[in-house]
């Protein structure tokens, strides 16, 4: 749904979480402002162009936003899945540095 300078796009909240949508929105915050709401099973984003003369069309920004949400969702999955390993690596990195207590 869109009108001149604004567009609304919604995401299924059983598929994507709110943080994922907010992180994705931030990436485009130099081009559009966001009004983000949750409604029943949806996360609704209303985009408004900051500068109507911007070289990127609103339609294109919405497409990029959708792809970015997929990427952010994948990043979250990888982050969660690798948390233990990440901590093990950091423990190795800082072992024998004299920085630990005790």
């Amino acid at each position: 749904m869109s009108s001149e300078g604004t567009a609304t796009v919604s995401f299924d909240s059983s598929v994507f979480d709110l943080d994922t949508v907010k992180k994705s929105a931030y990436k485009f915050s130099d081009l559009v402002s966001f009004d983000i709401r949750t409604s029943k099973n949806e996360i609704v984003c209303e985009l408004t162009l900051l500068d109507k003369k911007t070289t990127d069309s609103l339609e294109n920004i919405v497409k990029k936003l959708k792809n970015e949400i997929l990427d952010q969702d994948l990043r979250k999955k990888i982050f969660d899945e690798t948390e233990i390993v990440r901590n093990v690596i950091l423990a190795h990195v800082f072992s024998n540095t004299g920085l630990q207590d005790g």
Partner: peptide, 21 residues
């Protein structure tokens, strides 16, 4: 296999750059 920590950013429309720690 098990995944090790990494980040990724798009390089162009079809490719990504992934980096490890």
């Amino acid at each position: 296999y098990k995944i090790l920590p990494f980040s990724f950013t798009s390089l162009d429309e079809n490719r990504y750059v992934a980096t490890n720690v």
